[in-house]
Design a protein around this nucleic acid. Structure first.
Length: 213
DNA sequence: AGCACGATTAACT
DNA sequence: GTTAATCGTGCTC
């Protein structure tokens, strides 16, 4: 089986093109020799300084600096006193845009994920941005890492990595859009922009290795 | 002061 | 089975 990480050029496009294209892509995490993977099934686009739902609305700060950097890097932040969120930086350097990974359908490493998610039922393993980070053991140690370098898939038990690779095909008819969630205090028009993208699991041709929920 | 959330509870079908 | 309300927790600016 494949693969190599999606290249930096893939992340160069605008967030609202990138977010739907990330659906069906495979998120892969390796910690030592443990490998965990799954299909991205939900993502949200955060457009930049003008988007009042985007952290970059505050301009360049120590936290948002990563978003201003090169595409294809991880922007990971902490919120609500307990949760980590995984984003991927898009668009050219200097343009602070990112895609929030909101949900993943696991395909590999079910035992590892079950251990990390403790008592959660399989259907709740990674259906939420903080749950994705728990299931894949993602926290600030990975903030700013490059998701794109080739060769990181080589079997090296010492490695501790995160990347995204080509996964399963998703047709346009299988993509649902709607307003972003969890941004209630954000004013219009940003509150209602349909920049949330998710796979309609009732019609999608589920890849054979996806964990059945 | 406010927050790109989730676990738990409590009320419903 | 569902939806609605509550609030913990600590980082950011």
């Amino acid at each position: 089986m494949p693969m190599s990480p999606l290249p930096a050029s893939f992340y160069l496009q605008s967030v609202n093109e990138l977010a739907p294209q990330l659906l069906g892509a495979r998120l892969v995490r390796r910690t030592g020799r443990q490998r965990t993977a799954g299909y991205i099934i939900e993502a949200e686009a955060y457009v930049g300084e003008s988007d009042l739902a985007c952290h970059a609305r505050a301009g360049r700060t120590p936290r948002t600096e990563i978003m201003y950097g090169a595409p294809g890097h991880a922007y990971i932040y902490f919120i609500y006193g307990m949760h980590w969120m995984l984003n991927v930086v898009a668009e050219p350097e200097g343009s602070p845009a990112a895609v929030l990974i909101r949900a993943v359908l696991p395909s590999e490493g079910a035992e590892t994920i079950a251990a990390r998610r403790k008592k959660a039922r399989p259907k709740d393993w990674a259906n939420g941005p903080a749950r994705v980070c728990q299931a894949f053991e993602i926290d600030n140690r990975l903030n700013g890492i490059d998701l794109t370098p080739p060769g990181i898939c080589a079997d090296n038990e010492q490695d501790n990595f995160l990347w995204i690779e080509t996964g399963a095909p998703v047709l346009g008819k299988d993509i649902l859009t709607g307003p972003r969630v969890g941004i209630d205090r954000v004013p219009e028009p940003w509150l209602s922009k349909p920049w949330r993208y998710r796979i309609d699991l009732s019609t999608w041709n589920l890849p054979p290795d996806a964990y059945r929920v």
